[in-house]
Design a protein around this nucleic acid. Structure first.
Lengths: 343, 343
DNA sequence: GCGCTTTGCCAAAGCGCTTTGGTAAACGGA
DNA sequence: TCCGTTTACCAAAGCGCTTTGGCAAAGCGC
């Protein structure tokens, strides 16, 4: 390996000077600058990051913690993170947790020992606030996509509450009144907010209290969550279904169409997230779009800025806008009763 | 930060002994072992990786180079890589290249300076063989998904050739004879192999030479590639379409259905890869499944094994089986001419 | 009980960089 | 011209670990 000493020798200066010439922390004469650069080039020198890290205490690596990188949603997030990180001169260390608390802890321990400069945490609800602090020390941390209820942590989240409201408005506008809501498990703030926004508008409009069931945020969960309601849907007891994410929506659609329920003829379905498959599903899924790559980018930018000026994060909740995307899975409910022969 | 010296002090031994106790490189007495472990626990000590790396010359980090982590295909690959890496005690550093040669070089330079222990390269065709070697030195490298033509590099790839054959057999069996083939640009070995396998079987069966056009491996590329053939499809000049990946297939389906071509009624469409959206598309896409996560896992395992026994990679091409998945986008061609009024 | 090997520990030398304090030489104001 | 200041460089001390050689003490065969 070619070291800074080699460069120094070739340039006829001390390693110190080479370091200064390259980092710019102290001025060197133009003459020396040129000689150092030439030597660097000639030898193909790249500073060894391990040594830099050890000496400076900084790694220029950001840790990214997600539940599952195979999941398109988090993959998109990772894309934003990686992009912004590269721009800021950072590299990204990937950790996955599979929604498992043990693995979350493990990931955080690893991140600490790696002396990563900062963490983008997007693995659902973090273990707990105090736990996070204990594991991470004062390592800069940014929460993305999900937040800790009463925490003072910096977070970048979509406007889930507003998204829920948009869903309700859309469905109300179409004339729906009887709706089934699929939420994730109740301790995900994002899901709760979506449902809260929805219910707020829904009940304010005088529509009947929505029926809420849990679907675990997965495709399979969506499928099984609607299973018990097959007859209810066929009987027209519900004319609409709001799933708090697209995966559940898609799962629900799969099950419903398989038992002969027509979408959106018999029931309108609306999801949340606007993941890629919604565009390929038939009918194309109406949903709420959130720009998760942008969330990732913003998080990293905040982290990089804080690191650059050696200050802390702002500790605020940054809320990003969402948008209703009307596609084909929602329509006005049937006004006449369902004809006998169709049932 | 709590250092090895702190542990040593608390345990009443030297740092050397702590190091040995923890690494197991030399034996320590059971008594000391216990005391060290207790001290580690009490202080919450985790060895600083930067220092370990500098001293040992190993980082226990594997570099993963992909074109775009937002792409579900590579996300799945990354999942396999991350999983196997964690299992082997490695972390994954993520680099994306966006199919850009400059960024590829940049990624490799970065990887070298980071003193990563090994590289999983899945960013399409690498710059070139000699270039790779120059940038990486003798850093262990494994190619995944795509290979360099005449290279001696270790590679983990799907059986693209066999996949192409399976496509041809399937289409032939259904009774098709006139087919349009969408390949990527010609310098991707994977695409070439798929088409080669296909053509081999196709012509051997005495069917007319397939028409081959390029679609760039993207959704948009698939759309625009079939555009000039709208009339030809409507006129029944082609009864089948083989796209060398699902993205192109999905794009083609989008365009064709938008101009009134029925799938699979008018034309059968078959893709390659079995990415997630194929399951949501309507009609569900018939395709060739490859287990890309497994490819990633295998690559990392090979890398980890080689690193563990301090030997090199085997330099071989490891080929993984593929599988035909028949869904709804392929069927027998119409036997009668298309009725006038349908056109 | 003697020499031999083995066992268990420690001292010290790095790994390749950053960073600080020091010091000559060049500069500048009066 | 003299002295204070700036400029441009270097020496040396780490950063926190691993690794090697050395060295007592213990174990062993005879």
């Amino acid at each position: 390996m070619v070291s800074i000493a080699d460069v120094a020798r070739l340039a006829g200066v001390s390693p110190t000077t080479v370091s200064h010439a390259l980092s710019g922390k102290r001025k060197v004469s133009p003459d020396v600058q040129v000689r150092v650069l030439a030597a660097v080039k000639e030898l193909g020198y790249t500073p060894g990051r391990s040594a830099q890290s050890l000496a400076s205490g900084r790694t220029r690596i950001l840790g990214l913690v997600v539940p599952d990188i195979g999941n398109g949603y988090f993959a998109e997030l990772a894309q934003g993170v990686e992009q912004a990180a590269t721009l800021g001169g950072y590299n990204v260390l990937l950790c996955t947790t599979g929604f498992d608390h043990e693995r979350e802890k493990h990931a955080l321990e690893m991140i600490r020992s790696r002396a990563v400069d900062g963490v983008v945490y997007a693995a659902g609800a973090p273990p707990s606030n105090s736990e996070l602090a204990r594991l991470l020390g004062d390592l800069p941390l940014v929460l993305v996509d999900e937040e800790v209820p009463g925490a003072e942590a910096t977070a970048f989240v979509s406007d889930n509450h507003e998204g829920g409201r948009l869903v309700a408005e859309h469905l109300l506008e179409l004339g729906h009144r009887d709706v089934l809501v699929l939420e994730a498990n109740a301790n995900l703030v994002s899901s709760r907010e979506r449902v809260r926004g929805f219910t707020e508008v829904w009940t304010a409009a005088g529509a009947p209290e929505p029926r809420i069931v849990s679907g675990g945020f997965t495709h399979l969960g969506g499928q099984s969550a609607v299973e018990p309601f097959g007859e209810a849907f066929a009987a027209g007891e519900f004319t609409a279904l709001f799933a708090a994410n697209d995966l559940m929506a898609l799962g629900a659609v799969d099950h419903l169409t398989s038992v002969g329920v027509d979408i959106p003829g018999d029931v309108s379905v609306i999801g949340f997230d606007d993941i890629i498959p919604t565009r390929y599903a038939r009918p194309r899924l109406t949903t709420i779009r959130q720009d998760v790559a942008e969330l990732g980018r913003a998080a990293v930018t905040a982290l990089a800025t804080a690191l650059a000026r050696n200050g802390g994060l702002d500790g605020e909740r940054h809320v990003y806008p969402v948008e209703l995307v009307v596609r084909e899975s929602t329509s006005a409910p049937r006004t006449e009763p369902v004809p006998e022969e169709v049932r």
